[in-house]
Nucleic acid binder design. Sequence first.
DNA 1: AGTGAAACGACCGTAGA
DNA 2: TCTACGGTCGTTTCACT
Lengths: 160, 160
Amino acid sequence: MALIGRNAAGKTAQLDDVSKKIIEQLQADGRRSYAEIGKAVGLSEAAVRQRVQKLTDAGVMQVVAVTDPMQLGFYRQAMIGIRATGDTRVLAEQLSAIPAVDYVVLTAGSFDLLVEVVCEDDDELITLLNSQIRSLDGVSSTETFVYLKLHKQFYNWGTR
Amino acid sequence: MALIGRNAAGKTAQLDDVSKKIIEQLQADGRRSYAEIGKAVGLSEAAVRQRVQKLTDAGVMQVVAVTDPMQLGFYRQAMIGIRATGDTRVLAEQLSAIPAVDYVVLTAGSFDLLVEVVCEDDDELITLLNSQIRSLDGVSSTETFVYLKLHKQFYNWGTR
DNA sequence: AGTGAAACGACCGTAGA
DNA sequence: TCTACGGTCGTTTCACT
């Protein structure tokens, strides 16, 4: 077992090849049965279940539904770069609370934060920017990158 | 039933409140049983199963495992803004083929593309930038935003 | 950490409203 | 598009290694 990570509590997380294969199976299809995964990785159903439980509890992995915004009527997505003063963590907290915001990251570089937003249309994006983001205390300036086409999104972090 | 989206084939996708609730259930836990979801939304197990099948087939939703890069030994993430000449779609295709790249989007604004990368450390990031990204034909300049802290990532697009 | 077995519950196909 | 139902398969618990 190779040491691979460190979890939220600071404890080391270990991942052997079998666990990686299990994650790969669930990345391909999150509803695949433990029995089927067991056959694929050479483990009993109970053993697979135990490992999935552990990986989930440790926060290494989670099985969730992800949706396509475009197909749900959200035709306008954008990444917004934010230059800020003051504590960016406070700002990140406030930005996370906005429903249209689905991604917040503190960065080093010419932006202090990057936030991704999902809107129904341009009107909503404009309102969002003016009334909910630029109006926040500590936001110095913003730069908006409207999505023309989401080319590819992978969920296979870590097992590449 | 409200008209909500349009799928890859150009056909309209319709989503009523029940389907939205089903998606919410699976966003909370992708392995929740159809029977349990049925109880929560007031539908039979078979009906839930049918709807999940349809939503999945239409590409509206998919149930997958998502992992935490940090816990898998990828301690360095970054968003890279790219200014380019030529066909950005070709570039997007090439960028998608790089294993460390997990997100590619064509944008309007001062960048033509935004790509998110997942690396083990700074060395890998530097190599990636120089040998795999900036060396691509059509890349004029790049700007890197190193992630200090991924504050929040939501998978609840569309049902907010 | 892993297996195996038995009881239970989930899943799937099909029929019918 | 939904419910109802029966056969099959997956999951759970537990005793054991």
